[in-house]
Design a protein around this nucleic acid. Structure first.
Length: 504
RNA sequence: CGGGCUGUAGCGAAGCCUGGUAUCGCGCUACACUGGGGGUGUAGAGAUCGUGGGUUCAAAUCCCGCCAGCCCGACCA
């Protein structure tokens, strides 16, 4: 017998975390690099996961009163120039369309022809184009609020890309709302970060910290940026979603004005909020192990895979009949408000290979059924989160399948929360701070550090230290953060604590 | 955009220093043996060695340019 590697994924997380991440994606067949620089091909398994995320989020958006719409991919360059901070933030990473036609170049190739009067920007985000449209839609306070979301792709010409975490083109949703008052817009901003936190924790099984960004970390043009931050297994932070209170910055730039009850003309208050395919990267780095991807059941394209085991055609008939009946019964069971999603894998490949195929793809539950099990009217059940499988009577299996999925979902959440808790420390001095983030090798991708909760007085003065240690302020947590203290670096009085961490 | 590493069959690699026209593992195809486990054997298919140029009788190998990927840095809503 040939020896199988100790883990299905090489290298392990401990050995080389960034490479492990790539290999999990490959092993699970989620996506691959494309011929286009920085852009990925999302494969069916990865895309069906994204569809499940979309569906859950979309339902939550609808439940909070939003509607979907669609706006153009191209933005006239002049639109982007209107809000100064916004230009500053995005100009560097915009893809620009300057021509509208190709013609033969005389050497068998093609060259751009037909220069555009005004270059078009491929949207890096749609505040400007949507704002320009809203300006036409809003005249009266009776037109407000506008609560719209769009599912779209955006392009940011990032210098360094990583699959799912930072790609040049990515899929996302962006909500853009307009309100008559500051209070109402701020409420919306809070409501949507709440939706994201709910989704992250209850669907992705990923604990997140809700907080606000410091001025230097804010969205360009925003008055306030709320974010959810999660800890990955290498103890780095990942920003998983943001909700921005844009104040009147964009409405002034784009003239979104309305007449209020008193007949006065006012600028409206806007918000925007988004999550992207980066959530898949977050999912991978939160739950996956050295055997590959691990899917939280609520988002898994398949909950249960049935693996029939037989030697010959005669056995096959019997086993398949049994397995199909089992599939039908399991499919009638409910988990988290939906029917249990079951598939039979009867491909003609070796059993071991088949098993690892599903392990690497993260299917929550594998059920193996062979002639011996059928005699006992039972099946072998293996949960992706446990190393052992156990024999279980069919009737028990059917009645507990929902509970098993529930257990996997909560185990994943608890495991992730435990990792975050045990790698979060409160730090009160610069010496401790330096020690916490010190690297032991040249390789800054090694696993170390975590979240440091620190009182701080002034963001600007910390920059040299943060730059030196490659640490950023992730957010000022919203909850349990009312006790004043002294700044860990300057000793000056400080109102709030922030999370400091290395980040993606 | 700077530094480092890399690009050879679908995938992973050896060969490159010391030029002579391509090797191994996995996978794939067929057959046989196996059968609660990514097994064994036999036979096969599959590569203009990332790309363009140069040096040479001869280039995967040496030289130059370009492209792409990964890691680090800068940048990052």
């Amino acid at each position: 017998m040939a020896k199988a590697p100790k883990t299905a994924i090489t290298p392990t997380r401990q050995e080389d975390y960034p490479e492990w991440f790539q290999q999990v994606i490959r092993g699970a067949d989620l996506a691959e690099n494309s011929p286009v620089r920085g852009c990925m091909v999302i494969k069916p398994w990865g895309y069906s996961l994204w569809e499940n995320m979309q569906r859950a989020l979309d339902d939550m958006f609808k439940a909070t009163g939003h509607q979907n719409a669609y706006f153009p991919l191209f933005i006239p360059m002049s639109f982007l120039e209107k809000e100064a901070e916004h230009v500053e933030g995005f100009a560097k990473e915009c893809a620009v369309v300057t021509h509208h036609r190709l013609e033969p170049n005389g050497e068998g190739g093609l060259r751009p022809a037909g220069p555009l009067e005004e270059p078009l920007i491929v949207r890096p985000t749609s505040e400007t184009i949507i704002g320009a449209t809203y300006a036409k839609w809003v005249q009266s306070y009776r037109d407000l609020p506008i609560l719209i979301n769009q599912w779209a792709n955006v392009v940011r010409w990032e210098l360094r890309t990583r699959m799912f975490l930072r790609t040049a083109e990515f899929l996302w949703q962006e909500g853009h709302t307009v309100h008559a008052t500051s209070e109402e817009a701020m409420e919306e901003t809070e409501r949507m970060i709440g939706v994201y936190a709910d989704f992250a924790e209850n669907w992705m099984a990923m604990p997140v910290i809700v907080g606000s960004k410091t001025p230097l970390e804010r969205f360009p043009g925003a008055v306030e940026t709320l974010a959810i931050e999660a800890m990955m297994q290498d103890h780095k932070a990942l920003q998983a979603g943001t909700s921005h209170f844009l104040g009147q910055n964009f409405s002034k730039a784009q003239e979104i004005k309305f007449q209020d009850q008193n007949g006065d003309i006012q600028f409206a208050w806007t918000t925007s909020w988004g999550v992207s395919t980066r959530l898949i990267g977050a999912l991978i780095m939160t739950h996956s192990d050295d055997d590959g991807f691990v899917l939280p059941p609520r988002l898994a394209p398949i909950h249960v895979v049935l693996l029939p085991i037989y030697r010959d055609e005669e056995q096959r008939g019997e086993v398949i009949r049994y397995v199909e009946a089992l599939r039908d019964e399991l499919s009638k069971q409910q988990y988290a408000g939906t029917a249990v999603r079951v598939e039979i894998d009867d491909r003609d490949i070796r059993g071991g290979e088949k098993k690892w195929y599903h392990v690497k793809r993260g299917v929550p539950i594998r059920i193996e059924v062979g002639p011996k099990d059928i005699e006992k009217d039972s099946a072998f059940v293996a949960m992706r989160t446990e190393s052992k499988s156990e024999s279980m009577p069919r009737t028990q299996l059917i009645s507990t399948i929902g509970d098993l999925l529930t257990k996997i979902q909560s185990d994943l959440y608890n495991r992730a929360l435990e990792l975050r808790t045990s790698n979060t420390v409160t730090i009160t001095t610069e010496a401790e701070f330096r020690k916490f983030f010190a690297t032991t090798t040249e390789d800054s991708s090694e696993i170390h550090g975590g979240f440091a909760m620190c009182h701080f007085a002034d963001e600007e003065s910390l920059q040299p230290l943060l730059k030196e240690l490659k640490v950023t302020i992730r957010c000022i947590p919203r909850d349990n953060n009312d006790t004043p203290g002294t700044c860990f670096a300057t000793g000056r009085p400080a109102e709030k604590m922030a999370i400091f961490a290395k980040a993606y």
